[in-house]
Structure formats: C-alpha cells, structure tokens
C-alpha cells in the first residue's frame, strides 16, 4: 500500500509541473526543453531553506516557487522579446539547463553532485492533492482571464494577436513565469517527498518527460496532460523491466504524435466535454 501511495504522490507532484508546462507549451505555443531546470530551482531553494535554516515547510515551498519564477524572469526577459523567434528561447533554456546543472554540482551549499540527503519529508498526499487542486483552479481561471486569452491568441497567430492589441513580450513572459512557478512548487514538493535531491535528477530526461506528457495529453488542454503524466509515471513503475526502453518510447511517441495526431489525446478540449457532449476531442484545429 505504501508503494502505491508513493506512486500516487509522485504522480501528483509530476502533474503540478506538467500543469505549468501545459500553460506554456499547450496554451501559449512556445517550446521549452528546460522546464526541469525550474523544478530544480524550486527543489533546491526550498530544500536548502528547510535543511540549513529550518524555515517553515509551507514558506519554503512558496519560496521555491517564487525563486523559480524569478529565475524564469531572468531567462525570459532577454529571450522572449517580441522581435525574436521562439527558437532563441528554446536554445537559451537548453543552455540554461546545462549551466544550472554545472552550478549545482559545484556549489558548496548544494553539496555538489552527491546531492542533499536527509531533507525532512513533509510532503503528504493531502498536501499534494491540495496543491494540485489549487493549481488546476488557478490555471483554469488564468486561462479564462484576459491574460490567458491573450496567450491562446498568441499560440494561434502571433501577428494577428499583436494587431489586436496583445502585447507579445509581456504575455509570453507572464506565461513563462506562471509555468515556472508551477514547476518550482512541484520541485519543492518533490524534494520534501523523496528527502533526497541531486543535480542528476533534473536533466534533459526530466524535461522530455514533462514535454511528452503535455504533447501526448494534448495541447490546449488541462485534463489531457494531467492524465498522460499520471500514466507516464505509473506505467513504468508497473513495468519495471521496460525501464531502459522508456525513453525510447517517449521519443518515438513525440514523433508519432506530431506526424499522425498533433492534437494529442485530448487536444483543445477537456475531459469533461467528453461526458457532456460525447464528441469531445473531435474539434480539428486549422493548421
């Protein structure tokens, strides 16, 4: 039972990060292969606060999320400017992931590549569930707000959005910061659940897993990526043998989805619409 519980908790923690990336990639249409770095910032910030300074757990979580948001602001400000192609951000965030790993491996306070052991394990299922529920609530409302609608407009057509008065730079940056805050929160939860973190845990592999969940679940959907990310966490646990082939499958999945079904599992619709109309997921998007 403990084993199943821990899978459920891990799945939930992962879902919080996927929710963030879904806002950035699924709703704003920007590509990122470095969101694991924001998870790392959140994890290390909150862990260092509770480990060395005995800060309250909830404050530490908030600080981790805020730190991830602040770091994303530093990366986003020079790279997301309206005049620059989105490729610049993708390259910068890849470089940032590498640079951050090198820093984490060589700083004293992070205990280098050996990682931080013995972080208090405060994270429990109710806390994760509350964070996830709160996260979904905030995300839904964010996407219904003026800013969220602007994000979606940018995804559909940046030029048309700009002519309609959407400020590209601010909206993209806001979307990045919101997604990084989610990732930072997820990192804080993760550090205080596993009670051990090391730089190796936040590599390209993690970023790929987050992205694969968003793409497979469907862009422009909140529930789709959540379902997909849970499957991605639970399935490999169930099929321990396939460990080595997991990433092979993720890679193949990304390509196959892009070639055959770019809208993913639930592209541009929600799980609830399946029950309501029975035609959910059928809306093809013009491309």
């Amino acid at each position: 039972m403990d084993y199943i519980l821990s899978i459920v908790i891990l799945g939930g923690i992962n879902m919080v990060a996927v929710l963030g990336l879904s806002i950035f990639t699924g709703f704003t249409g920007l590509f990122s292969l470095g969101h694991a770095a924001f998870v790392a910032v959140g994890a290390y910030t909150s862990a260092i606060l509770t480990y060395y300074y005995f800060v309250n757990y909830y404050l530490a979580l908030a600080a981790g999320a805020a730190a991830a948001g602040a770091v994303s602001l530093i990366i986003g400000a020079p790279t997301l400017r309206a005049k620059l192609r989105s490729d610049y951000f993708a390259i910068a965030v890849l470089g940032f992931g590498e640079a951050l790993r090198v820093l984490l491996e060589n700083l004293d306070i992070t205990n280098g590549a050996r990682g931080l052991p013995g972080i208090d394990s405060f994270t429990t299922l109710p806390i994760v569930a509350a964070c996830l529920a709160g996260g979904v609530f905030v995300a839904k409302n964010f996407l219904r707000s003026r800013w969220g609608v602007a994000c979606i407009a940018i995804r559909e057509d940046p030029v048309a959005a700009e002519t309609a008065g959407v400020r590209l730079f601010r909206t993209r940056l806001l979307s990045l910061v919101v997604s990084a805050v989610y990732c930072g929160l997820s990192g804080g939860l993760l550090a205080h659940f596993l009670s051990f973190i090391q730089p190796q845990m936040f590599t390209l592999v993690q970023s790929t897993q987050l992205l694969a969940a968003v793409i497979a679940g469907g862009m422009g959907s909140i529930s789709g990526p959540l379902v997909a990310s849970f499957v991605f966490i639970a399935l490999p646990e169930a099929l321990r043998v396939a460990q080595m082939w997991r990433l092979v499958a993720y890679g193949l999945l990304l390509v196959l989805i892009m070639v055959f079904r770019p809208q993913g599992l639930l592209g541009y619709s929600e799980l609830s619409s399946l029950f309501r109309r029975g035609t959910g997921g059928k809306e093809e998007r013009r491309s």
Partner: peptide, 13 residues
C-alpha cells in the same frame, strides 16, 4: 513548434 517537438523526439529516440 510541431517540427521542433518532432525533432526533439527523434533526438531522444
């Protein structure tokens, strides 16, 4: 965006 995702998928695969 789709091409980039597909490329990254190839790389990981």
């Amino acid at each position: 965006l789709y091409l980039m995702i597909s490329a990254m998928g190839c790389s990981v695969f």
